[in-house]
Write a protein that binds this DNA or RNA. Structure first.
Lengths: 197, 197, 197, 197
DNA sequence: AATGAATGAGTCTTCATTCAT
DNA sequence: TATGAATGAAGACTCATTCAT
């Protein structure tokens, strides 16, 4: 484990509190209480509220990236990769809806350096899947479109869909998820494919 | 005009300042300065910072809705309606990227009642286009998929794509916008259509 | 008057509180209470506790310098100037003992720039009286000693003596002051004079 | 040795840190680091920061007193005693300028009991040298002045002069010290003496 | 109606001190 | 005896809001 126990406790607590209340409405005392430590203890591990927030966000972002990487192997075909992405995306949203919002979106009024870091991560991901899309084009199975635009569409559609589905009660979720994924994939792959037949 | 002059000046100023700095980093004084009025004057028109923010957000949301309504007439075909939505969406993002973010996204850590109001507006829009999608299905031109899911995909793809394009310099923008719209529409409509042919 | 009323009220209050409690033990709230204003009001006039302290100290230091300048005119003889300095010094210590300590001494653990500023003021004064001493030497009435050393002696002796006398009850003060001044001047001038006779 | 080794280490470290940073800016951790012990260890020897500070100050003050006592023997003549004081004073200032400031000055915003203790020490010294001055008067070699005032003058002049000289580079110091002492003593003794001749 | 000087509740942050090991 | 991780009281500072003019 990369961080000491107490540091992890604080990061986890901060994730919960920041997700619930947002950066400005989260009080250091809330986070300390949630972590079961004293207020001052946070400052033994993080120099400021902002540093704690940034550390937490970066941890989450790297966790999401890792999850995606673990679910996609290079011997997969391009369509398998895209389908795996779709499943992982649903997974992430299901488990970390609030934080994923913080990580994925432009909350552009925040610290420049964090925004830059997140942008970089997002662009890396985008470029990776752009490459996957290009594989499809090169293989002749995807029609000749701008792979960046197609990738943005793919991820954007996925994003909105998964958010909608993840609002549902747990009972409905699994069924609806499969149904939504089917719909999504059938439309996307049909739309992308070079010829009909 | 619905509001007095001074009230409008304040709403417009607040839009600019909130968009630039976000709710918590925007100071009432900044807004007063931007509006060219005294700090106290804002309180003659709005009871609090929150009320000002909510008024401004609601104004914007209603403006966006109006813009969409104005660009879609009921005698259009379902596909024309969807294409018109795509163009309007690009327009809105181009002109009000930051605010659109505030309006469209779940900034769920905020006032419940505003969130509820926005949700309602979004759902109305969603349901309207779900109906448009259903028209397409009923007409036999769109395959038999869940129209809500298809609509979410449509809007989500559009959202991500338009945000990406709107980062560009003005010189590139028009060309890229058309190119991106072409790509988007060609994929979506191909993906949605009932048969290949 | 150089500053607005409220600003002056705060400066005067801060003088009292800083003198009583020292920089670190003085609370902004104490100063606000003493000035009869709210805590936040101080920050409308001074950006920080340190800035308030520095402003106050500089005001005092310039006040002391002004008082000395007003009591010494250039048509005085060198010995009259030195005698006038002695009287003014007693006056200052009597009225502003605590602050004079802050201004005159090296409270070297403080902000570099303030220390530098004070050093400059002190050196200007020192050099002025060094010049006065030199006048005495040039006129043949003071023996040929290093005028800087003689000046330091003069001021140092005065400093300790006046502090001691100013501890006294008001009843004793006037009498003792005259007696101490007599003693001081008789020793200093006798010690400085070129010849006996 | 009066204190255990560790206790001494801590006292010496605190002297250095307090002198450099002042009471309020010195952190217990700084002192612990300087002493090469853990933060908690300080509390095995001193009940609080204040107690440590007071112990250190008292040690220093007693050291200065001891140094003075060692350099002045009762078989010296009154003028030899005063001259010895002058030399010791330069010595002390040279080696412990910062601390001497803390010990000698009225840092009146501090703990009453420490201030009282220091006052007592200073008064003892003052009274001792007042006695020396009185010896001079009784012997007919010093004119009939208030011996307390003369003593205060003597020490005050010495104080300012030695501080000034001790700012100098080591190369200049020895030469200037002798020159300053000469000036000082020639003025003081000439000023004090009963008759000229 | 418009203002902006004044306010003080609210929060981050520091650091002397404690105590389990 | 020695430690340093943990604590929380205390205080500087911010800014939405008020109100006398």
């Amino acid at each position: 484990m990369q961080f000491a126990d107490t540091k992890w406790k604080i990061i986890h607590a901060s994730r919960k509190v920041f997700a619930e209340k947002g950066f400005h409405n989260a009080k250091m005392e809330d986070i300390a209480d949630e972590a079961g430590v004293g207020k001052g203890t946070i400052y033994d591990y993080f120099s400021s509220k902002k540093e704690l927030f940034e550390t937490m966000i970066k941890e989450m972002a790297m966790g999401f990236r890792k999850l995606i990487q673990e679910n996609i192997s290079e011997d997969m075909d391009f369509d398998e990769k895209l389908k795996a992405l779709a499943r992982v995306k649903f997974e992430i949203i299901k488990n970390h809806k609030d934080i994923e919002n913080l990580v994925f979106k432009n909350f552009s009024n925040f610290d420049e350096s964090l925004m830059g870091w997140l942008e970089k991560i997002r662009n890396e991901m985008l470029e990776y899947f752009e490459g996957v899309m290009q594989e499809g084009i090169d293989s002749g199975r995807i029609k000749d479109i701008n792979p960046k635009y197609a990738t943005l569409m793919y991820i954007g559609g996925l994003h909105f869909l998964s958010h909608y589905i993840c609002h549902m009660e747990d009972a409905d979720y699994e069924k609806e998820k499969e149904s939504a994924l089917d719909t999504f994939l059938s439309i996307m792959f049909k739309g992308l494919e070079k010829k009909c037949l």
